[in-house]
């Protein structure tokens, strides 16, 4: 019996060793990469891929700060979080010659403010954060953030907002015409009053459920990310994504090479792999945002390429979320806690 156990344990060890040359550990957003693509990478490069997921940029930072840095190879932070992580010294750097496909990055996304010259990150997908409205529940004009913050009777009590202070308070600021990261007392008081006044009309706070509440009909309007809205439509929600005249949030998620990555080589291979137009297109077809990679067009499914969410009107206005300094951020946090107390 003992021999049998030893033998099978040995066989198991050998099998694992034979199965993969190395490992790759990814820390990623939920529902953001097709499993087939991970399988494809694992097979092509003979690497065992494991992935954990998070649901907000802040959760990503918190996990890495709590001691997980050094366990993951790559993570996928949004624009402002790249800046924060770089400032915290959590990112490793690479040179373009370590990545043959580096030139595939679209020109407009190479010299970005949050990572000038792309020394630690590559583009993953970009999109916008706004809201969608069920057109069966409301047939008025769809052009303003007032539908969320000063909603009409039809939508009251049927609104879901994202459960992250960054996105919800930034959209509120856009509606109120207040600059981001303001420390002006009157403006902050106005922002506080705006969200306090709107809350009774909100049914729920939820980010990971943002799509489901629209599909199920629990919410008739909901803040949502552009691709998530497209997916909700594909799942049968009779909704329209709104490009508000006050502006919306534009963001870009990036694959970042983490400091102390245990498998740095595989991480670079994976980033290079994601810069192949065909693979970048596979992510876009799945997540329904927009890749920052050249040459993806021919691989895109027509309904994804032509989705209204990914093709904003020419006059649509977007802003990136800014990372506020500490003394200002605590004020926004106080407003958020006050809103949910």
């Amino acid at each position: 019996m003992k021999t049998l156990l030893t033998t099978s344990a040995l066989a198991l060890t050998l099998a694992t060793a034979a199965a993969a040359e190395g490992e790759l550990k990814i820390y990623h957003w939920f529902e953001y990469i097709p499993q087939e693509l991970l399988d494809k990478f694992a097979e092509e490069y003979d690497v065992t891929v494991t992935m954990d997921t998070f649901d907000s940029n802040e959760a990503l930072l918190a996990t890495l700060k709590a001691g997980k840095l050094g366990e993951y190879d790559v993570a996928v932070p949004g624009d402002y979080m790249v800046k924060i992580m770089a400032d915290e010294g959590m990112l490793d750097t690479f040179t373009p010659d370590e990545m043959p496909n580096f030139d595939n990055i679209e020109d407009q996304w190479v010299d970005v403010e949050f990572d000038p010259g792309r020394k630690s990150t590559i583009p993953y997908q970009w999109g916008s954060t706004s809201f969608s409205v069920n057109t069966e529940a409301y047939d008025g004009p769809l052009d303003s953030l007032s539908l969320i913050f000063e909603p009409p009777e039809e939508l009251k009590g049927k609104i879901n907002v994202l459960d992250t202070s960054g996105e919800t308070l930034t959209l509120a600021s856009l509606y109120a015409g207040i600059p981001q990261c303001t420390s002006d007392r009157e403006q902050l008081k106005a922002l506080n009053a705006l969200v306090q006044g709107a809350k009774p009309a909100w049914a729920s706070f939820g980010s990971d459920v943002a799509k489901d509440v629209l599909v199920s009909g629990d919410a008739a309007a909901g803040m949502i990310w552009s691709g998530f809205s497209a997916k909700a439509r594909a799942e049968g929600a009779p909704i329209e994504y709104v490009f508000p005249k006050e502006g919306m949030i534009v963001w870009m998620d990036n694959v970042a090479l983490l400091k102390d990555a245990p498998n740095r080589d595989n991480a670079l291979k994976f980033m290079n792999f994601l810069l192949e137009p065909e693979n970048a297109a596979a992510v876009t077809n799945y997540a329904q945002y927009t890749a920052g990679v050249e040459g993806v067009a021919e691989f895109l499914e027509p309904e994804v390429a032509n989705s209204p969410e990914s093709n904003p009107p020419a006059d649509a206005k977007g802003v990136f979320v800014q990372a506020c300094p500490e003394e200002v951020q605590v004020l926004y946090d106080a407003i958020w806690t006050n809103l949910k107390k």
């Binding site: 907000s56 802040e58 959760a59 930072l61 918190a62 700060k65 709590a66 992250t164 202070s165 960054g166 500490e326 951020q329 605590v330 926004y332 946090d333 958020w336 806690t337």
Partner: peptide
Amino acid sequence: SLIEEQFKGAAGN
């Protein structure tokens, strides 16, 4: 959720 927010929220306290 209040405690969770202190570890996962924007300011992290």
